[in-house]
Design a protein around this nucleic acid. Structure first.
Lengths: 137, 137
DNA sequence: ATTCATCTTTACGTTTACGTAAACTTCCTT
DNA sequence: AAGGAAGTTTACGTAAACGTAAAGATGAAT
């Protein structure tokens, strides 16, 4: 079902709502490495997953450089030396810490939104009850 | 205890590890409006809270424009008309949706980190067991 | 009185992440 | 054969978020 095998750049562009410019730019930054048929880029479902990961990273506010680092974290787990691997574990836990900070931040902002919403509802209530009073007077 | 009342720009700069340039830039973008004694900026604990909120927003990948929008969301809850307030409720729920998407994204990335970490540990294990074999041979 | 430390404004420079336009190829259709 | 749709490279432009001097004001300490 999900094995269409290959995608054109415009297909991916539409599916994920990004411009082809962006997709090519990500390739320029070595975040994607699609194959070619002649000049034309051909994206495998692996490439598609990569793109999905890129966009996910962006939604979290990561720069393309950081996303590239995350990718190499992943890739090097198969090929690293002992020092490399130890370093990787450190980097991984650093990323984890970032994410946990983000979770805390989100929780705080959610609280602020809660507060803003109830203030907003209160203000609305006051306005509409005043209107009713004016109507009956 | 926490009521030092006022802060200099460098105090805030050090406390939150941002440059004074950034702090002044945030003011330029109307995200901060400190008082003045002569030419010198004086920050109240309210301003300090604002700065904290700005940096929190940045950690979540929000642009300064979005952060400004969040602030005005908050501020307008006291002064808005009925239409304003209804619009605010919509915007608030939009922000909420963004945050929930971020939470999902974070969960996914955490899973990927889990996976990367165990791959990493496996690889390390193999390396060290091979070393032991070599030692005993 | 001068030397600092800290503050200020002004302004040009830089990086990131694309937007946008120009000019060209390829393939398909009419 | 001619046109159009979708792809390509090249390259200049741009908005955001600061960095980085330069040049001066202010207040405290020597």
């Amino acid at each position: 079902m999900n094995f269409k095998k290959t995608y054109s750049i415009s297909e991916l562009s539409q599916e994920f709502d990004v411009t082809t410019r962006s997709i090519r730019f990500y390739e320029d930054q070595s975040l994607l490495t699609p194959g070619r048929r002649g000049q034309t880029r051909i994206y495998t479902s692996q490439d598609r997953v990569r793109l999905k990961l890129i966009l996910r990273g962006k939604r979290l506010g990561f720069s393309l450089a950081e996303i590239r680092e995350l990718f190499s974290l992943w890739d090097e787990t198969t090929s690293g030396s002992e020092k490399q691997l130890s370093l990787l574990l450190i980097k991984i836990s650093e990323k984890r810490a970032e994410l946990e900070q983000q979770i805390k931040d989100i929780a705080m902002v959610q609280l602020e939104l809660d507060s803003a919403e109830s203030r907003c509802r209160d203000a609305l209530n006051e306005l509409t009850t005043k209107q009713k009073q004016q109507q009956t007077e």
